[in-house]
Design a protein around this nucleic acid. Sequence first.
DNA 1: ATATACTGTGTATTTTCTACACTAACACAT
DNA 2: ATGTGTTAGTGTAGAAAATACACAGTATAT
Lengths: 223, 223
Amino acid sequence: MYSNFTVDCVIFGFHEGKIKVLLTERNEYPFKDTWGLPGYFVDNDEEMEHAVKRILYEHTGLKDIYLEQLSAFAGLKRHPSGRILTVAYYALLQLDHMKVKLKPITNYMKQARWFAEDEIPELAFDHGQIIELSLAKIRRKITYSPIAFELLPDKFTLTQLQMVYEAVLGKVLDKRNFRKKMLNYGFLKELPEVQKGVSYRAARLYKLDKRKYLKIFQQTISF
Amino acid sequence: MYSNFTVDCVIFGFHEGKIKVLLTERNEYPFKDTWGLPGYFVDNDEEMEHAVKRILYEHTGLKDIYLEQLSAFAGLKRHPSGRILTVAYYALLQLDHMKVKLKPITNYMKQARWFAEDEIPELAFDHGQIIELSLAKIRRKITYSPIAFELLPDKFTLTQLQMVYEAVLGKVLDKRNFRKKMLNYGFLKELPEVQKGVSYRAARLYKLDKRKYLKIFQQTISF
DNA sequence: ATATACTGTGTATTTTCTACACTAACACAT
DNA sequence: ATGTGTTAGTGTAGAAAATACACAGTATAT
């Protein structure tokens, strides 16, 4: 049995230098055939975060995705048939895995697709506003927390990392200063491997040293 | 008629060098006679934020209080009689006005009182956890947003301002560096007045120049 | 007049941030 | 083997911001 509130999820991925959002075409009223955020009613005996993970899995086939609650939305007019409270989450995932399968296995949606920020159509409910707020949130958050790594595969190049920052912040960064700063933090482990499949000089691969990163991150938090 | 969810409010004030939280002694089951956060069911035809403002007014007699949503809490076990979702807000108010009347005018609570961080008793529901999260939130927020002013009267001394920062951050700051930094921002207006009622040299009063502060604040946001 | 308690101020040092441009390496085509 | 295209990878100097640190001045109370 369903509870009386829903969860909605803003799923961010990073692809071809751009931040993308996963949207679904609804197959249920209201807003049937309109694009919107993946989301649904939470089961009555189900923890809210479990519901979000379930929806994420149904849409992407992925588990263990970075997840944060954004905010609750409960406007009287957000749902045509009376107020339905929704708790919005945002998720960051490593799209480059490309294990992400976009065949929806639920019957309340018709299809799912990735949209770049500037391609997003008119959305159902207040979902447009929710995405705006999520973007504002990660733009702020990336400046004090290393969420960029959640958007990249385990092994990445410094240029890829910089591209994530540039895509989220919406501005270009100085290459030398960026590398200097990132390497100075000391939480990047240089791997004995380089990029493959590029038709030019392959770049060094790095991975995140989670221990060191948590140490530094916690210091930053408590400043 | 009531909706099926509640709002709870962490009301922060600043008094005698400490951050205080306003708690109420419940007069309703569950957790009758236990201290908890001010909060109640949202009316069916009432906007959520309106309900928070109503509760704030009922408890403090104040309107136009700084208010932000913290998070929604919906744990299956947070309420003994089944899941009740609550949306938690935090509020910052200028306690030194001391117009704050603590006679509750509702019948679902017995009394209200200010508690310093280290005096907070065991609380009803998950309210202890909610306060923890609110504190973490304002500790972070004060580093990038001038919320300190919300806790002070319109006219304040630089020492008072510093004391707010020290109370929130939980560490002592260097007086000269603090003043230098604050005055450099340029959003403080020096008043032709000094403190009154002190038995030593009276300090200069300042007030916030909201226009300049918003300009600088927005720049900071978009960095 | 004297004690008390807080206000208000400057400088030198270290650290962090910013601006800026070229050579090296590799893949591929010829 | 050579050349072309494309990105990788690197250092330094100047500016700005953060930090550490101590004492004389002023209002009040007795």
